[in-house]
Simulated assay, not measured.
Amino acid sequence: MTYHSKLKCEFVDELFEAILLLENTEECYRFFEDICTIKEIQAMAQRLKVAKLLRQNKTYHEIEEKTGASTATISRINRFLQYGADGYNLILDRLEEKHQKGEGK
């Protein structure tokens, strides 16, 4: 099944193709540091952490304390976890699987 997003266009396709060519964490750091601001990278990392904590059934207060995310951000991510394109769940499932195999942190 192919997912068709509202943001789908040639430029975004090329961006995602480029990201898929990155081979390791070091390459990700190098590419994302060039293409994004530090704040943008930190915001994406924070959102992923919030999603992970929500799936662990942490409270909004616990998540806010741990990540510094606002309750509005936490609520928005929770909505995406429940009703979004399933992107958070897809990647969090894969990260969990990788970590269970002892391949990650």
Rank of each mutant, 00 (worst) to 15 (best):
K98M: 14
S5I: 05
T71M: 07
L92K: 07
K39W: 00
K58S: 08
D86M: 13
D34L: 13
A45H: 03
K49W: 02
R55S: 03
T71K: 13
S70G: 09
F32E: 04
E103Y: 03
E96F: 03
I91C: 00
D34K: 15
Q82R: 12
N78V: 00
K101T: 02
D13I: 03
D34G: 01
A85N: 15
E33V: 07
R76W: 11
I91A: 08
L48K: 00
K101M: 05
E62V: 02
I38P: 02
G68V: 05
Q42S: 09
N78S: 13
V12M: 15
L7N: 05
T73P: 00
Y60G: 05
D13W: 06
Y29S: 07
L92N: 07
Y3D: 11
Y60D: 06
C36L: 14
N89A: 09
R30Y: 07
S75L: 05
S5G: 13
T25W: 05
E64K: 11
K8V: 10
A72H: 04
G68S: 05
H61L: 14
G102F: 04
G68Q: 07
I63Q: 05
C9S: 14
I35R: 11
M1E: 11
F11K: 12
A69K: 03
Y3S: 11
L15Y: 07
E33N: 14
Y29K: 13
C9W: 00
S5E: 06
V50G: 08
K101H: 08
L48A: 06
L48V: 14
N89K: 12
H4V: 13
I77K: 06
I19A: 11
Q82W: 00
D13V: 02
M44P: 06
S75R: 12
T71A: 01
L54C: 08
I63Y: 01
E96L: 09
F31T: 06
I77H: 06
L15D: 04
N24Q: 04
T37V: 03
E26M: 08
I91K: 01
N89P: 03
E17R: 15
R94N: 12
N89L: 08
D93A: 11
N89I: 08
E62C: 01
N89M: 01
K101G: 00
T2M: 10
N57M: 04
K105L: 13
T73A: 11
T37R: 01
E23M: 08
K66H: 04
A72K: 08
E97D: 13
E64L: 03
Y3Q: 14
E96H: 07
N89G: 15
T25N: 09
L7F: 12
G84D: 10
Y60Q: 06
K39V: 03
G68H: 10
E96R: 13
A18T: 15
L15N: 01
R76T: 04
R76I: 09
F31A: 10
H61G: 06
G104T: 14
R30M: 04
F31Y: 14
Y3F: 15
R79I: 10
Y83H: 15
K98L: 15
L54H: 06
E40D: 10
K8T: 11
E27T: 01
F80P: 02
N78M: 10
F11I: 09
T71F: 10
E14F: 09
K49N: 11
E62F: 00
Q100V: 04
L53A: 05
L54K: 08
I41N: 01
K66R: 14
I63R: 05
R55N: 15
